[in-house]
């Protein structure tokens, strides 16, 4: 019997799409190979449009509901654990490594699910100002985040590059290169869970084709780089980013509360007290 092989596509605005360019590139895994979309500059622009709409919807969803949506994501992955393990084995992991990786990813999602309705109590506070004023600092999500995934074929690494901005209400464009197959597979669980369309977009491609456009795009509010990139490329990205004071985070912390801070803007509101 002829093997029926899945066609992996980008995931943008809640839909599976090919690159508008029609181009693909070959992922040669240890035990298999796949053709995946080679994201074009136009695809990036489309993903930003979708992410902006996704941000509007996702940031409006209450923290309590966000917690449940994130927790449901862990349930979805748990249900599909075997298929992740199989794919990771195709990528070259041992079965044990693969199992451990998926379990780590699930534990991580559950941790952040429980943070979605609490982080504001940790990062925000009343300020004891000198005078008769009520003064509170709380945080808003920064907006559209572009995240460059590492080349590890690992579900837990992928999650660590997107879960922090997602937890606080940012929309995310996740871009993977050599590790695309895991990300494109993960899109299926996103699609089956309750994330609003556009809140998480998954793209595959070669970053060097698109980094200029990504770093110049004024509607991307922050670029998170979770992979070692050449210093010339980082320099160019940061130079381009300066034209709109765009935030760049290189190798963000994945440790506790520090891991969400880059994706927040602190807003402080004053009001007089009186009779």
């Amino acid at each position: 019997m002829i093997e029926i092989k899945k066609t992996y596509k980008n995931y943008v605005g809640g839909k599976y799409v090919r690159s508008e360019s029609g181009k693909t590139f070959t992922l040669n895994l240890k035990n298999d190979s796949f053709e995946v979309p080679l994201t074009s500059k136009k695809d990036i622009r489309d993903a930003v449009t979708s992410s902006k709409a996704g941000f509007e919807k996702w940031s409006e969803i209450s923290p309590y509901t966000k917690t449940q949506i994130l927790y449901r994501l862990s349930e979805m992955i748990e249900g599909n654990k075997d298929s992740y393990v199989d794919l990771l084995v195709l990528c070259g992991s041992t079965k044990n490594q693969a199992k451990k990786d998926v379990e780590t990813a699930i534990e991580n999602i559950v941790w952040y699910a429980g943070l979605a309705d609490k982080w504001e109590q940790v990062s925000g506070n009343l300020n004891p100002v000198n005078g008769e004023y009520f003064n509170i600092s709380h945080q808003n999500p920064i907006g559209v985040v572009f995240s460059l995934n590492s080349n590890n074929n690992s579900l837990s690494s992928l999650l660590n590059s997107i879960i922090q901005p997602l937890t606080v209400g940012c929309s995310v464009i996740s871009f993977s290169e050599e590790s695309s197959i895991i990300a494109l597979k993960f899109a299926e669980d996103i699609n089956n869970s309750d994330f609003p369309a556009g809140s998480l977009n998954i793209l595959s491609g070669q970053f060097e084709n698109v980094f200029e456009d990504v770093s110049k795009h004024v509607e991307i509010n922050l670029i998170s780089i979770c992979k070692e990139i050449p210093n010339e490329m980082l320099t160019k990205i940061q130079e381009n980013a300066s034209s709109s004071v765009k935030r760049i985070v290189n190798m963000p912390s994945i440790d506790g509360i520090s891991s969400i801070l880059p994706f927040l803007e602190t807003k402080t509101v004053w009001h007089p007290k009186g009779t």
């Binding site: 300020n127 100002v129 005078g131 004023y133 003064n135 600092s137 509101v269 004053w270 009001h271 007089p272």
Partner: peptide, 19 residues
């Protein structure tokens, strides 16, 4: 409002404890 400081029924108030 997309602003780091919002003054409601006041303006230009500052305090070292207020970001």
């Amino acid at each position: 409002l997309q602003a780091g400081v919002v003054w409601a029924n006041t303006f230009n108030k500052f305090d070292p404890s207020s970001p």
